[in-house]
């Protein structure tokens, strides 16, 4: 399918660190979904040839001079989208866990003008098949509750990095995006800034190579950092963005 007119120019933002084995396939899959999408791979100072492979598959590559972490890398892509005047941005992981064939579902609420931010959630549909390990399941659920409570809207999956943004969303995240473990806090910032959030059920694949950036040792830091960030974010004042454009 091709993106409808109402989505305007579309860019796919893909942060990647040492993903040379899968990055080519990720780029090809997005191209197969829609050949008109511009694909931007942000190479977070990989030690392998991720950047070259992405480039040879036709992606625009932004090379960070040193590793800035996933959030800083993603934000580079949003800054690119803002500077190059894209109307819509989608963000997928560079490891292939986000299925490009699900993009159509992700973009539908934007196309209908119902949302500024669409999150691909693994838990909208209670019958979903995704069953993470117990500890992670508890973590995901606790953060979802906390963000729902502080943000005033029920959110089912705050740890998903599979999302789509309209122009307002691009502007917000280009200006404000946490540098490490960004997804949970970014969701709350979006809600508190008045963005309209939609969630759609998506399938996610098991990682094809490498391991999740959240190892067991880091999970304590993750929980502490994200909890603190959420509590502080709920004390901060965010300007309400003008989202009703039509």
């Amino acid at each position: 399918m091709t993106a409808s007119k109402s989505l305007g120019r579309l860019v796919a933002v893909i942060p990647a660190f040492d993903e040379s084995e899968v990055i080519g396939k990720v780029v090809d899959e997005i191209r197969a979904f829609d050949a008109s999408v511009d694909i931007v791979v942000i190479d977070d100072a990989s030690t392998d040839d991720t950047a070259e492979i992405a480039e040879s598959h036709g992606a625009i590559v932004l090379r960070l001079p040193h590793n800035v972490g996933i959030g800083g890398a993603v934000q580079t892509g949003f800054k690119f989208a803002l500077a190059e005047n894209y109307d819509t941005a989608v963000r997928l992981d560079g490891d292939g866990q986000h299925d490009a064939s699900e993009l159509e579902k992700l973009l539908a609420p934007l196309e209908r003008g119902e949302a500024d931010l669409v999150i691909g959630s693994r838990f909208v549909d209670p019958g979903g098949t995704y069953r993470p390990p117990l500890a992670r399941r508890i973590g995901i659920r606790v953060f979802a509750r906390l963000v729902s409570l502080l943000g005033g809207q029920r959110v089912t999956d705050t740890t998903s990095g599979f999302l789509a943004l309209d122009r307002i969303g691009i502007e917000l995240f280009a200006a404000e995006y946490p540098h490490d473990y960004p997804e949970v806090e970014a969701t709350l910032v979006a809600l508190r800034s008045g963005l309209r959030l939609a969630q759609v059920q998506v399938r996610m694949r098991e990682r094809e190579t490498g391991s999740s950036s959240i190892t067991f040792v880091r999970s304590l830091y993750y929980v502490a950092k994200v909890t603190l960030a959420l509590l502080v974010a709920s004390l901060r004042r965010y300007p309400r963005l003008e989202t009703a454009r039509r």
Binding site: L62, L64, P65, T76, K79, F80
Partner: peptide, 10 residues
Amino acid sequence: LAQRIALLEE
């Protein structure tokens, strides 16, 4: 700075 360098280089 790193982000700006990446954007400028491109």
